[in-house]
Design a binder for these strands. Structure first.
Lengths: 325, 325
DNA sequence: TTGTATGCGTTATCAC
DNA sequence: GTGATAACGCATACAA
């Protein structure tokens, strides 16, 4: 591949000049610019980003660590984050932790070595201290780590309250919450807290089931629903902590001859696009996924620029009623 | 951040020695190794991958260009590709083209500038010549570009034949194929070719509908199904070119009072995990997504190593019957 | 076995 | 306005 030196030589100028043209710095005659641009074109020259990054100590890369891209929610999140990064001239290094501690740890190391300009953390299997050691612009999704590290999330408590309130309003008398394991200090745990609060306020019987610690597996979801109906066959309202989980609940109801919403009412969380494939359409609490993604990227960029950023970014949710409630 | 120089200084050795320890090259006494490792630890030193990459002219980054990560099929593909890349010590730069020509073009440029070691192309909005100009290890998914560029895909023709054969066996007499626009020379077009061939061999009436050129939008899918049943209300067999499309077909049937599989039989393509959320379970032609991903990464690595690779990689599909046929 | 010097492709600091 | 030259952080050929 041709280098800046080749361009300089062929254009009959110095590398400094070529670099100047490249970065549009200082005063350059139109004629000179054209000459340089032409030789670049001629040589099919592409500036070496590695060298640029090294020299400027800025890579224009954002690292994204999430549990699973193949999970629809994270797929949408990733998609929007990529879009915003792209619009701002950043590349995205994708890291699937699979909720594997070692993998997440190694990825953090790799990202630091790669001198990424910042990291968006959507996976949180490690201890607080591990994240504090990173010393890079950081944004966390759905987890509060320490005051210096900003986090962005949906209004989990309000979402949980809205969902539970709807089930109560519809006359449910025996509620179940299903979700992933609340082992870590994830903010999504607030959905459950709200569920419990509202159910108790309203004096409604309620219970909660959750998957294993590393639970994002589809088989686990199935087992969870089976257990639920085995232990509590007369459940008449389910608040699922994700739309995927809600879809499983719906399927489990249909398979066991329960009518939805007549016998059992179901409401999910997330508001993923794929929800629309379900029949009947699943009621849900919509997270502003696009807004969350945008904010996360902005927060990374602002930190890089040395700006002070607020540490708390709680974005509003919206109740979106379908046909399962 | 500390550099190799800091480590050398503090350990009382030369940078060369530190570099040697880092890369485990040449003969080094255990004592010396330990001393160097200890100072690295002490300084929390991380080698600068940018500098390493520049020096070795190898970035250990693979670029992945796909239309949409949020599409379940590409989500799974991405997930597996990431896994294999990681296992081989490569990082993944994620590029969502959104089937936008300009974006895809710019991304190719960015990847070249970033000196990625290879590119896996799952988006193909550009002309053959654009890809031939890349001059980097390349692998294509589902598109044949030129003999030098290896491609990997599922056995599309066989998949289409299996699907159509099944519908025919079940007694369907009026078949429809639905898919995305066959504008580009995508190999998935073979699914349709097989559909037509088999239907004609068996003497079965058949038709085909497809989305717009840039069609991956969910709304378009809905419109497509609406049109299908409007024009051909008596269709009794549908072969959808993706499971997502099949899910829409299923929903459209249910919404219009058609029983599946009694009135209309449906079979999809891909074999995505999310298919299991549908009720009834959708019959499908399963692509070996994991194997495809593995092969793609391998082909990139082998090309980087200068090995000669075969240009055609057609992996077997499998008919997986659910409850919609 | 360890160190010196040079190069990787850019940018930035000086001079001229 | 333009051009040498020294960084950027690391790897490596060559010496010692």
């Amino acid at each position: 591949m041709p280098t800046i030196k080749d361009v300089a030589l062929k254009a009959g100028v110095s590398v400094t000049t070529v670099s100047r043209v490249l970065n549009n710095r200082g005063y350059l005659s139109e004629e000179l610019k054209k000459k340089v641009y032409d030789t670049m074109e001629e040589l099919n020259y592409r500036p070496n980003e590695l060298a640029r990054s090294l020299s400027r100590s800025k890579s224009n890369i954002i690292g994204l660590i999430i549990p699973f891209v193949s999970h629809p929610f994270f797929g949408e999140l990733t998609s929007h984050i990529e879009g915003h990064a792209y619009r701002n001239g950043y590349k995205l290094l994708l890291c699937n932790s699979q909720l594997d501690k070692l993998k997440e740890f190694e990825y953090i190391d790799m990202l630091r070595s790669s001198r990424v300009d910042g990291i968006i953390m959507g996976s949180h299997t490690l201890e607080v201290e591990a994240y504090r050691q990173i010393h890079l612009p950081l944004v966390t999704f759905d987890r509060q780590i320490s005051p210096e590290i900003p986090y962005v999330c949906s209004d989990n408590y309000r979402g949980g309250a809205l969902a539970t309130g709807l089930l109560a309003d519809k006359g449910c008398r025996k509620l179940a919450h299903i979700g992933v394991h609340p082992h870590l200090n994830l903010l999504s745990h607030q959905r459950y807290v709200a569920f419990r609060d509202v159910a108790e306020q309203r004096g409604i019987w309620h219970t909660s089931l959750h998957t294993d610690v590393n639970g994002f597996k589809l088989e686990e979801y199935e087992a969870l629903l089976e257990q639920l109906f085995l232990e509590h066959p007369d459940i008449d309202g389910i608040f699922a902590s994700s739309d995927i989980l809600a879809a499983y609940a719906l399927k489990a109801c249909q398979d066991s001859g329960r009518r939805v919403p007549e016998d059992v009412r179901i409401i999910g969380y997330d508001g993923i696009a794929q929800r629309k494939l379900q029949n009947p359409l699943i009621s849900t609490i919509r997270q502003p996924i696009e807004e969350i993604s945008k904010r996360a990227v902005e927060l990374i960029i602002e930190q890089m620029q040395g700006k002070a950023v607020a540490s708390e970014h709680i974005l509003p949710v919206e109740l979106e009623e379908g046909a399962t409630t």
